[in-house]
Every structure is written in structure tokens, then in C-alpha cells.
């Protein structure tokens, strides 16, 4: 299980613009670096990050090898209705991590 830290409001007013910040532990190995034995360390990055609000996609980004380890993502969205925001990271080697957030909209 990946270590994840998320900073998002638990409650919001309908129509409010809210910020969701997410940090995940990941080496983001570029695939260009040789290891101590001289061989290239295989690429191991998060390729895709997405967020859905009650199943509807609200944010998506493609990540590249140039992004540093433990990537930090921040984005804004409009509070539409109470429910669950699911943050999802997926990448090389079958890496998948999900983090659900309950947000109450009044």
C-alpha cells in the first residue's frame, strides 16, 4: 500500500472552488540512470493521475520521467454535490493506488 497524504476540505458550499492537494510516495525512476552495476535501472514512474467526483472524471494528468520522486499534485475543482472524490495513480509495473475522499456539499 502506497503512502499518500491528501489535503482537501471535508465540507464545501455548492459552487465553491476548492483545492485538492495530493502527495504520494513513489521513486519516479527515470529509466535513464545506470545503477551501481553499470546497467540501466528500469523505468518505474507514475504514468497517470486522475480524480473522479461520484464517478465523473474531474481531473487527469499524464506524468513523465522528468517529474521528481514523491510527486505532489494540486488542482482546483467546483464543488457540485456531496459524495466521494477518488484519486487514482497508475504506472509502470502494474502500480495502482487509490485514495477516496468524502466531501459534504451544502
Amino acid at each position: 500500500m502506497a503512502n499518500i497524504l491528501v489535503n482537501a476540505p471535508k465540507t464545501a458550499k455548492k459552487g465553491d472552488i476548492i483545492e485538492i492537494k495530493a502527495l504520494i510516495m513513489h521513486p519516479m525512476e527515470t529509466g535513464f540512470r545506470p545503477g551501481t552495476n553499470g546497467r540501466i535501472i528500469p523505468r518505474n514512474i507514475v504514468e497517470d493521475f486522475s480524480a473522479t467526483w461520484n464517478g465523473r472524471e474531474i481531473f487527469r494528468m499524464k506524468m513523465s520521467p522528468a517529474i521528481a520522486a514523491n510527486p505532489f499534485v494540486s488542482f482546483f475543482t467546483v464543488a457540485t454535490g456531496s459524495g466521494t472524490v477518488v484519486l487514482r495513480w497508475s504506472g509502470d509495473g502494474g502500480f495502482v493506488a487509490e485514495h477516496p475522499l468524502a466531501i459534504t456539499v451544502t
Partner: peptide, 14 residues
């Protein structure tokens, strides 16, 4: 100062 932005806190979690 922000415990959700400080990457060291990921290690603290572990």
C-alpha cells in the same frame, strides 16, 4: 510547515 506537503511526512507515515 504543511504536514500534507512535506514529503518527509510520507516517511513518517511509514
Amino acid at each position: 510547515d504543511d504536514d500534507t506537503a512535506n514529503p518527509a511526512m510520507l516517511f513518517v507515515q511509514a
